[in-house]
């Protein structure tokens, strides 16, 4: 697909449009960072006020699921960085393979998360009538666990869909490798990774010592 066809109003040159798209996504990522930070502030308040029960609950998360998923998402982020940078350098095959890897790894994360959630529910770690822990602050931990991982998973799913779409269109040559969309999606995906990098110690490594 020609580069000219990827040009949109009101832009007159694709590099300028691409720069604008990159700035736009960075600004949006800043807002996403503030979004998650609000929830993490709630986590921080609760942990500060009820450390004992909060950390006792934190020990109940499955550190292996968490760690494996962290590495999976880091690798997916690596793949996406390769896809975007290879695309920039017009290395078509490398870019497509990397996009495919990023999608597969993203899906793996979701599948593992699904298994983890099932185990959490079986262990009665969802706050409600049959909640397993009675210490003050324990239910708070799991409220934040479910909200933070759930909202993160939603963001991740959106990312997987976007990357899959890129892979499809680029492989059919409907999308040029220089398109701003690859760069924009990559930056979004890296933020999803960064959020998880922050959540990992907060949700999986707390209270272990």
């Amino acid at each position: 697909m020609s580069e000219a066809a990827a040009l949109r109003e009101p832009w007159r040159s694709l590099p300028r449009q691409r720069e604008a798209a990159t700035l736009g996504i960075w600004v949006f990522l800043a807002s996403e960072a503030l979004f998650f930070s609000g929830a993490i502030l709630g986590y921080a308040f609760s942990r500060y006020l009820h450390a004992h029960g909060f950390l006792a609950a934190a020990r109940e998360t499955n550190v292996w699921f968490g760690t494996v998923n962290t590495i999976v998402l880091l690798t997916s982020s690596f793949a996406m960085a390769m896809a975007a940078q290879a695309g920039d350098a017009r290395l078509r095959r490398l870019s497509l393979v990397s996009l495919a890897a990023a999608v597969m790894l993203g899906l793996s994360f979701l599948i593992l998360k699904g298994f983890e959630y099932r185990e959490d529910i079986e262990k009665h770690l969802a706050p409600g009538a049959k909640f397993a822990l009675e210490l003050q602050g324990a239910a708070l931990f799991f409220s934040f666990y479910w909200v933070l991982t759930g909202v993160h998973a939603v963001h991740l799913t959106v990312g997987v869909v976007l990357i899959a779409r890129l892979l499809l269109e680029a492989s059919r040559r409907e999308l040029p490798l220089s398109s701003p969309e690859i760069q924009v999606t990559a930056l979004y995906w890296h933020l999803v990774d960064i959020i998880w990098i922050i959540l990992y110690p907060l949700l999986y490594l707390a209270g272990r010592a």
Binding site: G42, L49, H50, G128, G137, L140, S143
Partner: peptide, 12 residues
């Protein structure tokens, strides 16, 4: 039903 602000569960 996730307790977050609920003082009975320790919410601030």
């Amino acid at each position: 039903g996730l307790p977050i602000f609920d003082a009975a569960h320790g919410g601030d």
